[in-house]
């Protein structure tokens, strides 16, 4: 209700604003032409997905839906590929890629990319039910030298996990993606994995699987902001501002949450909206 009213107001203001601008400038510009320039998509935008559980797998997922929505709203043509994560960073840095989904902002990355908050990511650990009762924090895991920890290569898990993983040394086994760590967990290669919470649901959709493995929230930290990545060379700050407003609109008009709910449980969707 609230959202709807805001929407109405927003649209009203926007109309008024547009009319005012038009009156001042003395020129009525075509809405679409303006839009493409505003978003910097006079040319097609090259966007890379990567396998990330419910966000993207087998050509579908939240990322796909969001990108489709963005394209729909902006009128921009977005050409997508699916690439490994590490490669995406390289391409962004090498200016061979315009956009990508789901990355955490660091100063280093900020040198070549703009970041627009997209969803809140809550990392947790998944462990076998047999050892789960012993785990209340990540430090409990570190204290047991027999447990190996599986993580995805190139992932940042937020300061809580990243600092602790750095001291775990050889016990941390790195895998190329989420599928790999869940497989390694099920295979017993590792006893504990660090994974976004929604991936637990994703990789253990059945009750049987969830009976064997437990999702344990060991981090006191709030969800970390997972951002949409924009190539700094390709886009200007003003265009990023426009993209940012677009995300805000999708958030405020509920589009984003609807997309999330299509792929994850409401509970997980609520976490994703927390950013």
């Amino acid at each position: 209700m609230q959202v709807r009213r805001s929407e109405i107001w927003r649209r009203g203001y926007r109309l008024l604003g547009t009319m005012a601008l038009a009156a001042i400038s003395g020129a009525v510009r075509a809405a679409q032409a303006e839009t493409l320039a505003d978003y910097g998509c006079e040319e097609p935008i090259h966007l890379a997905f990567y396998e990330f559980g419910p966000f993207y797998h087998d050509g579908i997922g939240i990322d796909r839906d969001v990108v489709d929505e963005l394209a729909a709203r902006t009128g921009c043509r977005i050409e997508t590929t699916t690439e490994p994560r590490a490669q995406i960073w390289q391409e962004l840095e090498a200016n061979t890629l315009d956009m990508s989904t789901g990355g955490i902002r660091t100063d280093a990355r900020a040198r070549f990319a703009y970041f627009i908050p997209y969803f809140g990511l809550k990392n947790a650990v998944v462990a076998g039910r047999d050892i789960a009762p012993q785990i209340h924090s990540f430090d409990d895991i570190l204290e047991n030298p027999n447990w190996r920890i599986g993580v995805v290569e190139g992932y940042l898990h937020g300061p809580y996990f990243d600092y602790r993983l750095s001291v775990a040394g050889a016990r941390v086994i790195r895998y190329p993606d989420q599928n790999a760590i869940y497989r390694a967990l099920q295979d017993g290669e590792v006893q504990v994995i660090v994974s976004p919470a929604f991936n637990y649901e994703y990789f253990f959709p059945s009750e049987v699987q969830r009976r064997d493995f437990a999702l344990i929230d060991v981090s006191p930290a709030p969800p970390i902001s997972e951002d949409m990545l924009f190539n700094k060379r390709r886009f200007t700050p003003a265009q990023i501002g426009a993209w940012s407003r677009l995300f805000e609109q999708m958030r405020l008009d509920g589009t984003l949450e609807r997309i999330f709910r299509r792929q994850v449980s409401p509970e997980m969707a609520r976490i994703l909206m927390t950013y």
């Binding site: 609230q2 805001s6 107001w9 927003r10 203001y13 926007r14 008024l16 604003g17 005012a20 601008l21 501002g241 407003r245 805000e248 609109q249 958030r251 405020l252 909206m273 927390t274 950013y275």
Partner: peptide
């Protein structure tokens, strides 16, 4: 063009509204 905007946030710093103000 100068864009004047208002963004409203709740206690969890979540965006709860925004408004363009020409």
């Amino acid at each position: 063009q100068r864009i004047g905007e208002y963004r409203y946030y709740d206690a969890t710093n979540a965006l709860v509204g925004s408004r363009l103000d020409p």
